[in-house]
Nucleic acid binder design. Structure first.
Lengths: 205, 205
DNA sequence: TGTACATCAGTGAACGCGCGTTCACTGATGTAC
DNA sequence: TGTACATCAGTGAACGCGCGTTCACTGATGTAC
């Protein structure tokens, strides 16, 4: 039987969930430890039984996010196999999908200001997600002519950057400029053009 | 003679500059009205002679940033003319350059959470920057075969997104993943691949 | 040039607030005998 | 099964703090005569 706790049941998880809701609703700035505690039906002091403080709670939410994110990337990658191209495309789409479905985690990971180097655990989790894309990019290169060209990890960085940019600029209402395009279409088309530029898609699809 | 003010000289500008330094050093979260006032050598209450409050001060900094940004984009675009390709590439590079040279403004504009729809002035300033890129993309399309393809503004959105992503993920130390590549190289290569995919660069450069 | 007056940028004290964090405690849960 | 005890998750009161904002004021600057 899972250890259903003493008084609350599973406060730690409840606090993380409360934090995620707050982060999503009010941004990383608006998040407060006290309000997260209140939402979990608990005194602020109770938080300190499970976390070292405010920062640590955010970091824990981010860590959980990185685990989910890496899992999702690996899953997308596997689904695209054995086609290197399909696998690569899938990881790009998975990025946007994750931001859509888990906005609280996404913000905690990429916009809360917590460093990925905070703990080795956090660093490793983020590295696992990165490495999926790197692997996909590497396989894509194997099919390409062996000229001198940028390393594979540069290609994954490009897709990573474009995905992140689409999320930040066009998938959030708050940001700089609303576009007339759906983020999914924007990213799909962008990755398409990019892959054509790599020579792994025919010049005119 | 410029109106050198009563007591301070030019408090409004001094406050904006103080705010920019704080935003750069501590992020939009860490910025406080009181500290900006202190840095300008003035009481917090004095801020209210020039701004409606904390948010308004940030918005003013962002507005100033959008003006500079749009100017810089227009300049880059003009330098690239009459080549549509050079003009388009230049605007992408200008994006990164701006983020490098004016990090405080950049953060106030894109990471502070203030909406571009806050005032019409702010909205117009941001639109001016956007429109430079749109114009460059539009001209690029004129040289392209007239098949059915996504509208020009989609291409500028792609470059916009990739530029933003490169800045956020690889040009700041804090963020998710340090890459072994210089942001400038990363963006240059990425835009290159993308333009090849558009068919406006030869398949192998 | 000198005096009286109006303007208004900046002062300084005060406010209420919610924050993160601490501490001695309490009382429900689990365990030993 | 029943009792005595240990554990420790969560309490509640308290703290010091810096925040954004307000207000009546002051005193330097600019202007009118």
């Amino acid at each position: 039987m899972p250890k259903r706790g003493y008084h609350h049941g599973n406060l730690k998880e409840a606090l993380i969930e409360a934090a995620l809701v707050l982060i999503r609703e009010k941004g990383p700035t608006g998040f407060t430890l006290s309000e997260a505690a209140k939402r979990a039906g608990v005194t602020p002091a109770a938080v300190y039984r499970h976390f070292d403080g405010r920062e640590d709670l955010i970091a824990e939410a981010a860590l959980q996010g990185y685990h989910m994110f890496a899992d999702l990337m690996e899953h997308a990658y596997r689904d695209g196999q054995p086609s290197a191209l399909a696998a690569f495309e899938a990881t790009g789409r998975a990025y946007l999908a994750f931001a859509r479905v888990h906005p609280g985690h996404y913000i905690a990971m990429f916009e809360s200001g917590i460093s990925v180097n905070r703990t080795t655990e956090l660093s490793q989790a983020s590295q696992r997600a990165r490495s999926v894309m790197d692997r996909a990019a590497h396989e894509l290169c194997h099919n390409m002519p062996e000229d001198r060209r940028p390393p594979a990890s540069m290609f994954s960085a490009h897709i990573w950057a474009m995905s992140h940019g689409v999320v930040e600029l066009f998938a959030r209402n708050s940001a700089g400029a609303q576009s007339p395009f759906a983020p999914e279409d924007l990213l799909e088309t962008g990755i398409g053009v990019y892959l054509r530029g790599l020579g792994v898609l025919p010049p005119d699809g």
